[in-house]
Design a protein around this nucleic acid. Structure first.
Lengths: 242, 242
DNA sequence: CGTATGCTTGACAGTCATCAAAGCCCGTGG
DNA sequence: CCACGGGCTTTGATGACTGTCAAGCATACG
């Protein structure tokens, strides 16, 4: 029983806004400094009061939660260009941890200036909203992954998603690129155990779909892996925020 | 290896902004109309061009994705006061479906007016951002659920989360309230099969933790169920958007 | 050369999916 | 009033998938 929508818009949104380029000088005006961390160091501590906001400029970080029983669920991998710590601006503290996976450099913003910035540059708010929507789509995807797909498909999907995000940043030029992830990280991201991640990777390698050895990911044929894992080959990938 | 944060803010954000009350007259000025749907009808069709934005005023809706193999993953339950279709404003179309679960009434907004609204009322952007952050926290929670918890804990957690969201809207006054969900919906939400959802519910009922019969949910002791399923009893629940 | 770390492999147990059948509720029609 | 049928729920049996434990193997590094 389909229903007719009351709105049938033919005109597109204001393209200048749709591109959602943040006026960089406005953001950098908020920059309080630059932070460099070594691999493994904490960026954000869960449940700690925090009024800073970061942008990841270089390196990998990961956002995760821990459970009473000691296990860990990785919620997202954070790549250069992504924002870090936005929820804590609204709630005063974060309910998840953020940890540097490689050496990273972060731009540090003063969150208290954010309201003023939004008032002055609505484009920034627009861009933040858009970045949030992108992140939500990734969250939806991962939820579907964990809920409905088998182990090899999960791994294949995750690898493809990372590939695309890296490629959008120019960090995965050819058919292979570096991936600083070990079995345990993949396991905590897709809800499996280390052992079964290893098995899934072995299966993918045996099928010629993907190979992750020595932190080097190779995907000989993207289309094949996408078909196998149900990954939608999208429209041109979108950078999060310029 | 802890690290000292460069920002140690003692002053809180502007409380007027932090409360994030949307100037309602501004939003209603965008309202193009009101839409009523029967139970089971589609609100948003995946991959269809759409430039409308809704607010759910009454009833339940659900946001879900479908897979090539025919299975379905429920991404979120949409309750009165929630926004619907925000991502499609940014991407032109939605990658998930939204369907009325009960009879619903929706407020219809013209998405093309949103940029102007944001320019004029930065508070609206702030509120939208905050609502997005809340939704992201719920997404994080569900991801952790699917990745790291067993079947009964998942169900218990989901029931508690729904209870709190309903209570924040005054729709779950006492220790029991109506829940228009059957086994299959719960199953598709937490990544289990109908049969195992039934078993998990039986286990919860046997343990005296929760009872869901005839679409009526009863939680005799919230604290017990929270402890069992790892649900954090939070600070005062926050309404999404006034 | 010994140690440490991470990857691999095998065996076993636990959880969950699947299938099939039986019970329950409720509206319909005789 | 009762028989019938459909949708939803419950229960049992079986098998697939994944977690867990433990041992063997590489590789890097001191």
């Amino acid at each position: 029983m389909p229903h007719a929508h009351p709105l049938n818009p033919s005109r597109r949104l204001d393209p200048a806004l749709d591109r959602a380029c943040v006026p960089l000088q406005a953001v950098t005006a908020m920059t309080r400094g630059r932070l460099t961390l070594r691999a493994g160091e904490l960026v954000i501590t869960a449940n700690a009061r925090l009024r800073a906001l970061y942008t990841l400029e270089e390196g990998w970080a990961l956002r995760y939660r821990t459970l009473p029983n000691g296990s860990r669920q990785i919620l997202d991998f954070i790549l250069p260009g992504d924002w870090v710590g936005l929820p804590s601006v609204f709630f005063g503290s974060s309910r998840c941890w953020v940890r540097a996976l490689t050496p990273v450099t972060l731009g540090v913003l003063d969150a208290r200036l954010l309201p003023a910035l939004l008032r002055k540059h609505p484009n920034v708010g627009w861009a933040l909203l858009k970045a949030g929507m992108l992140e939500q789509e990734r969250a939806d995807t991962r939820l579907t992954l964990l809920g409905r797909l088998g182990s090899s498909e999960r791994i294949g999907y995750l690898l493809l998603e990372l590939r695309d995000r890296l490629r959008a940043r120019g960090l995965f030029p050819g058919s292979s690129g570096p991936l600083p992830l070990d079995r345990e990280l993949l396991a905590d991201a897709v809800g499996l155990s280390r052992v079964h991640v290893a098995r899934a990777l072995r299966a993918l390698r045996a099928a010629g779909l993907a190979d992750l050895t020595n932190r080097l990911l190779t995907i000989p044929n993207v289309r094949n892996l996408a078909r196998f894992s149900g990954y939608p080959l999208k429209r041109a990938p979108q950078r999060p925020i310029g």
